[in-house]
Design a protein around this nucleic acid. Structure first.
Ligand code: MN
Ligand code: MN
Ligand code: ZN
Ligand code: ZN
Lengths: 137, 137
DNA sequence: TACTTCTTTGTAACGATTACAACTTTGGAA
DNA sequence: TTCCAAAGTTGTAATCGTTACAAAGAAGTA
């Protein structure tokens, strides 16, 4: 598997400690965290880390295509390490985000009604299986 | 066609002047406006209107199912008067939002992997036909 | 070394939204 | 009618996520 430093270099991003740790975090935790969640998670290990650095880094990563930024019902942006196209489901009870591997037609690089499509997101909302079970109690 | 007052009453919402004007606006202008855009548009006609009222009203309408709230790439919520399921496309150049009538499998009321689906959004991003033409210049 | 550029940091500012408490309107009892 | 409780509206302050900015630090290069 490709190392984090290799991934960064391939994308013309200098591999600073901050950037390595942030990408490492997103590679390990597939929870679609917000910038703040990432900051909180790394703050112990890196006491001098600045939240601005987290935002800067996420911006850089997203622009270079290393990460995907998601807008999933709410006014905060969530990030994930880039993977195959997949569907997102967010539970209205517990706010957890699930990846669904259901297939769907995706139109990236297509032209629809004359518009050039560069991103395609399918976002579902509802009550997750765990919360459904709790409601039944 | 059903009157605005009828729509409100059917949904157990008392038809105040503010609520009528806000729903009227969303019925007439299919631009997926933000709360602030609605406020700005109505402020001339209703000088005492409060932005809080706009937020309260949009919340009520959304909870009652009169409106749909959309999260389309960005940290502000957009609203539209409820219609048939359709795809949204947002231009990264001009930020305009287009409705696309392309059909897609939608899973409302279905169960996927044990999760109960209540909302299904398909959001595309790219460069709209108008901005594509400008780029060519 | 000195210089340039990139990166990080802390603070302030910003935009969207919510909390809250006071005020106003409404729709029934009495 | 008059009175009151509930519902609705308003303005202000607070909060949250994010961005702007300028200073400080690190790294690379001649
Ligand atoms: Mn995902
Ligand atoms: Mn629409
Ligand atoms: Zn849940
Ligand atoms: Zn455009």
């Amino acid at each position: 598997m490709k190392s984090i430093i290799e991934i960064l270099k391939e994308n013309d991003i200098a591999p600073s400690m901050q950037r390595i740790k942030i990408l490492e975090y997103l590679q390990s935790y597939k929870t679609h965290p917000t910038a703040d969640m990432i900051y909180q998670a790394l703050a112990d290990e890196m006491p001098t880390l600045s939240k601005t650095t987290v935002y800067n880094t996420l911006k850089t990563f997203t622009e270079k295509g290393v990460l995907m930024a998601l807008s999933l019902f709410g006014n905060e942006v969530r990030y994930e390490y880039n993977t195959e196209p997949h569907i997102h489901f967010k539970c209205t009870k517990c706010d957890k985000i699930y990846d669904l591997d259901k297939s769907f037609d995706h139109y990236n690089d297509d032209l629809i009604d004359g518009h050039k499509i560069t991103e395609h997101h399918v976002n579902l909302r509802g009550i997750c299986k765990i919360c459904l079970r709790k409601v039944g109690d």
